[in-house]
Each structure stands twice: as structure tokens, then as C-alpha cells.
């Protein structure tokens, strides 16, 4: 119920958000070409831009609830088709990065937290924090420069090699080579979040009495960590991972642009340049819906994992 209300609010908010931008979508559509006044007016009428903003809003609401996201100003294709076409690329890149960031980041946090103030802790904490504080597109550009431009180990962008026809396993390998750098960039950039949350949560749990009890029982250090400390310490990390899963669809605007990865992030960057109102509205609606959905999933998951949280 709460989630549905949030979504309704997002739908309304989306409409006005993009219309605050002081820019004429028509100018972009025409790309500076000299077109007669009459044609311009026709175009305006065709997209409903001649109507008062309140009327536009009513149309927008009605059509959105019918499942019609409109026609992109830019491509003149239905927004929904444009979006669906780009979902697989984004889910693949962000999904792989999410998995690596979560698994490696959490493992780093466990090592750092359990052996606090040792050289391992310092090494892990400082390196993941450095990567986390660096802008992701900048990290992407550096990796691209080093590994693609200078060393030539990886392609400089896109999802597959252009101009050659590869099949079967070779095509798959070629695809992996394209995926590697953008996925590495995003994994490195977001690992730090998991490391810091895991570390601080573990450090907090380590001062709990039940860990002293576990040690007093004669358990091995590893058993104390894995059976008593981690099931408690990882609760907030699981929530974080589930929440971040909601951002998978929204793609990575900057990194996708750096690597010319044809996903939703790149589509967003293009649509902002318009501004392509229907496309932006469609994209943001999808992003919000996915974040809200995964928030809900995170709550349900927490209820399942933590016996203290009863269903309300």
C-alpha cells in the first residue's frame, strides 16, 4: 500500500521535474534545421506541446495508467519499445558489477572488521575507500586509457566487435572482452560501500556479550565468526545489497557513456540532452518502480532473516 502511494507520487513528480528544465524540446528535434513556422506548429500540435501544461498533465496521467508511455520525441518510436530494447544490456552490466561488488566488498569488510587495526584492515579499508570516493566515470576513463588505448588488451567500447562476424563461443568471448572494463569499473567503484558497512557492522557486533559467550564455550575463532558474528553483522549488508539491486535497471549513466554501452544509462544521458520528455518520464518511472519494488523485497527479506522482526 505504501509502495503504491510512493509510485503515484513519483508519476506526478516526474511530469513536472522535466518541465522545470528551461529548454525547448522542439529545438532539439529540429537540430537547428531551418523549418517553416507552419511545420513547427504542426509538430508542436502532434506532440501536444501547444496545449496548456495542465491539459498535458491530464493526458499524461491518463495514458500512463493505461500503460502507454508515449512516443519518444527523438526516435519517434514508442518509449516502451525503446526501453525494453535496452534493458538486457543494462541488466547484464549492472548485474555482474553488483554481484562482484557485493561479494568481494563484503568479504573485504569481514576480513577488515574481524582483524581490526591490523595491516590487512588498513590496506582493505584505505584502498576500497579510495576507489569509492573517486568518480566512477573518471576511474572508467583511466582504465580505458590504460588497458584499451595504451596496452590494447580490451576493446574501447560497445558490446561486441563491429565489422567481423563471430559465432558461438568466439562471439561469447568477444562479448566478455567488451563487458570486462565497464564491469570492472563499476565493481571497483561500489565495493567500498559494502566493505564499510560490513566492517562497521561487524565491529559493532564484536563487542556483544554473545560473542564472549561463544568464545567461552570453547569454539574456534572461525566458528565464532561464521556462526555467531556474521549472521548478525550481515543483516544490514543484505538489506544494502537488496536495495542496490533496485538500482540495476537505472544503469550507470556516466560509465555507460564512457564505454558506449548501449544500456538504459546511456539512453537517459541522450534523453536529457533533448529534453525528450516522454522518454525521460518513461525511464524515471521504470527506475522508481524498480527501486520501490526492491525496497519492499529488502523489507520482506529482513523479516525472513531476523527473527526479531515480526510481520506487521
Amino acid at each position: 500500500m505504501g509502495s503504491a502511494l510512493t509510485l503515484l507520487f513519483v508519476v506526478c513528480f516526474n511530469f513536472f521535474l522535466f518541465r522545470i528544465v528551461p529548454s525547448d524540446p522542439l529545438a532539439h528535434m529540429l537540430r537547428g534545421r531551418n523549418i517553416s513556422r507552419e511545420v513547427q506548429d504542426n509538430l508542436r500540435a502532434a506532440f501536444g506541446l501547444d496545449q496548456p501544461i495542465t491539459t498535458q498533465f491530464v493526458y499524461y496521467l491518463r495514458e500512463t495508467f493505461r500503460g502507454n508511455l508515449g512516443i519518444s520525441f527523438h526516435s519517434r518510436q514508442p518509449v516502451w519499445d525503446e526501453i525494453v530494447e535496452r534493458i538486457p544490456a543494462t541488466v547484464e552490466l549492472l548485474g555482474v558489477s553488483w554481484l562482484f561488488a557485493a561479494v568481494i566488498g563484503t568479504a573485504g569488510g569481514v576480513i577488515a572488521g574481524w582483524r581490526r587495526n591490523t595491516w590487512k584492515d588498513r590496506l582493505i579499508t584505505s584502498s576500497t575507500m579510495t576507489l569509492y570516493s573517486v568518480p566512477d566515470f573518471w576511474l572508467g576513463i583511466i582504465l580505458l586509457t590504460v588497458f584499451s588505448v595504451v596496452l590494447g588488451w580490451f576493446p574501447i567500447g560497445g558490446m561486441q566487435s563491429v565489422g567481423v562476424r563471430l559465432q558461438g563461443f568466439e562471439a561469447f568471448l568477444d562479448h566478455l572482452r567488451h563487458l570486462f572494463l565497464p564491469a570492472l569499473t563499476l565493481s571497483l567503484a561500489y565495493m567500498g560501500e559494502y566493505t564499510m558497512v560490513t566492517r562497521s557492522s561487524l565491529v559493532e557486533v564484536m563487542s556483544e556479550d554473545y560473542l564472549t559467550v561463544a568464545r567461552a564455550k570453547g569454539l574456534r575463532d572461525k566458528v565464532v565468526r561464521n556462526h555467531h558474528a556474521l549472521p548478525n553483522a550481515l543483516l544490514p549488508v543484505v538489506t544494502l545489497a537488496a536495495l542496490n539491486l533496485g538500482f540495476i535497471l537505472s544503469g550507470a549513466i556516466a560509465v555507460e557513456s564512457v564505454f558506449s554501452w548501449p544500456g538504459l544509462g546511456q539512453a537517459t544521458a541522450e534523453a536529457i540532452r533533448g529534453p525528450d520528455y516522454p522518454m525521460l518520464q518513461g525511464l524515471f518511472l521504470l527506475f522508481s518502480a524498480s527501486v520501490i519494488l526492491f525496497n519492499l523485497i529488502a523489507d520482506l527479506l529482513y523479516m525472513y532473516l531476523d527473527p526479531r522482526v515480526e510481520a506487521s
Partner: peptide, 20 residues
């Protein structure tokens, strides 16, 4: 530990693992 000497901790504090 626990076979020769065992400790009864203060239960109101968090001496029991909350998720076990």
C-alpha cells in the same frame, strides 16, 4: 572452556545470540 569451568552471564544483556 565450558567443560572445566563455565560462566553464567548476565542474561538481560546480550548474552544470547538473537538470531539463533
Amino acid at each position: 572452556r565450558w567443560t572445566a569451568g563455565a560462566i553464567v552471564f548476565q542474561g538481560a544483556l546480550h548474552a544470547l545470540n538473537p538470531v539463533q
